[in-house]
Design a protein around this nucleic acid. Structure first.
Lengths: 138, 138
DNA sequence: AGTTACGTTGACGTTAACGTAATCATAAAT
DNA sequence: ATTTATGATTACGTTAACGTCAACGTAACT
C-alpha cells in the first residue's frame, strides 16, 4: 500500500502537522496506522476524510465540536441502515431516530439560510466590483 | 428620534452587550451617539449596520478583521464613486483601484467556491435525512 | 427620597484551535 | 557510520472573541 506520512499529509490537505495531530487528539479523525517506530501512516482514504473535515470546518464554519457531533450521527445512521438491510433487526430506538432526523433537518434549514445570506452578500460584492470597474473604464 | 439603548440593541441583534461594546472597541462599528450621562444611544440605522456585521461574521465566517477590511474597502469605493460623479475629480490612484478590484474578485471567487461546497454538503445532509426517514417509515 | 434597574469603564478570566520550543527516537541521505 | 531530516511526545505560549466581576454613576420606578 502507498503509505503517506504526516508531512505529506499536511501538504495534501493544506493544514499543518500540528493541526492534524490535534484533530486526532480530540477524536475528530481516526487514529491512523502506525509503523513500528510509531510513525503515523495515512492512506489515501484517510486523506480524503481529512480533506472533508477541513472543508466542513473552513467552508461551513462548523466548530470542531459541531463536526464531531455530525460525524458521529452520520456514523450511527449508516450503522443502523446496514443493520436494517442485513438483518431486519430493529435494534434502534424510534425516539432516538426521530431526534436525529429533527437535528439533521435543523442543520439543513440553517444551511439553507446561510446560503441565502451568502447570495445576497455575493450580490453586494458583484455590485461593488461593477462600481470599481466603471471607475477604471474612464 | 427613537433612541435605542444597548440592552434593547442586544436583543434586536441577538448578540450580547459585551459583544457590541467590543465591536465598537475594535472599530468594527461606528461609536454611536451618547446621552449626557454617557449612555450609548443607537438609531435604527445603527442596528441595521450591526445586524449586517453579525450576519457577515456568522454566515460568511469572516473574522472581524476581514470584515473590517471589507468595510473599509467598501467605504472607500463608495467615496470615490461619489467624488467622481459630482466633481469629475480623478483623485484616486489607478493602481490602487486595480488592487481593490482584484481583492474583491478574489473574495467573490472564494465565496463561489464556498457555496459550491455548501451545496454538496447540503446534498449529503438531504441524503442522510432520506436514510433516516426510510428507517422511520417501517 | 430611596431603592432598584440599567449603563459605564476597567481589568482579569476563559475557551477553542492551534503555534512553538524542547527533547528524544528513528529514518534517510551521504 | 555519521550527519541530517523527519517524526513523536510533552508542555507551555498565543490569539481572537468575547465572559465575568468589581466599582461606580445615572435613570426609572414607587
Amino acid at each position: 500500500m502507498n503509505w503517506i506520512k504526516i508531512d505529506e499529509a499536511a501538504k495534501m490537505t493544506g493544514i499543518t502537522k500540528r493541526a492534524i495531530r490535534y484533530y486526532e487528539e480530540i477524536g475528530l479523525i481516526q487514529p491512523p496506522e502506525r509503523s513500528d517506530g510509531q510513525v503515523r501512516l495515512y492512506t489515501e482514504e484517510d486523506i480524503e476524510q481529512l480533506k472533508r473535515v477541513v472543508d466542513a470546518k473552513e467552508v461551513l464554519g462548523f466548530s470542531l465540536q459541531e463536526l464531531q457531533h455530525f460525524l458521529s450521527i452520520k456514523g450511527r445512521v449508516l450503522e443502523h441502515k446496514v443493520q436494517y438491510e442485513t438483518s431486519r433487526d430493529k435494534t434502534f430506538k424510534q425516539s432516538e431516530l426521530e431526534e436525529i432526523a429533527a437535528g439533521l433537518k435543523e442543520q439543513r434549514d440553517m444551511l439553507e439560510e446561510k446560503m441565502e445570506k451568502m447570495k445576497s452578500f455575493q450580490n453586494e460584492l458583484k455590485d461593488l466590483i461593477q462600481k470599481v470597474e466603471s471607475l477604471l473604464k474612464v
